[in-house]
């Protein structure tokens, strides 16, 4: 299955199924209680990806700020600089089962 087919299946799944009360509550709590600004929420092949913006460099990142969020099991965490436009800001992407 290539990426296109996976995302097509994800889209159909998302369009047709209802999120359970538990999933909705988890998402709501995660978004409300996040210690850093939530830049984006996205569905990916592993679950849900929440993107956070953190001011400062790598040294300013405290991983427990992100691992405490309990939407689901964490698949991976990516940390990368925002880039030229925002050189003093990092982005943290947490992918969790959803």
């Amino acid at each position: 299955m290539d990426d296109t087919q996976v995302f097509a299946a994800l889209a159909k799944n998302l369009a047709r199924r209802n999120l359970s009360e538990g999933q909705l509550s988890s998402l709501s709590e995660a978004l409300k209680n996040a210690k850093h600004s939530v830049i984006g929420a996205d569905i990916c092949t592993h679950g849900i990806c929440l993107d956070f913006g953190v001011d400062g460099g790598f040294e300013s990142i405290n991983l427990t700020d992100f691992t405490d969020i309990s939407i689901g099991d964490i698949h991976n965490i990516e940390i990368f600089p925002e880039g030229i436009i925002l050189p003093d800001r990092m982005r943290v992407r947490v992918t969790q089962k959803f």
Partner: peptide
């Protein structure tokens, strides 16, 4: 509902990838 709106937001993100 809020639930459907949340799915719609996530769905638009999936479409952006597609």
């Amino acid at each position: 509902s809020e639930e459907a709106l949340a799915r719609l937001i996530l769905l638009s993100g999936v479409f952006s990838k597609m």
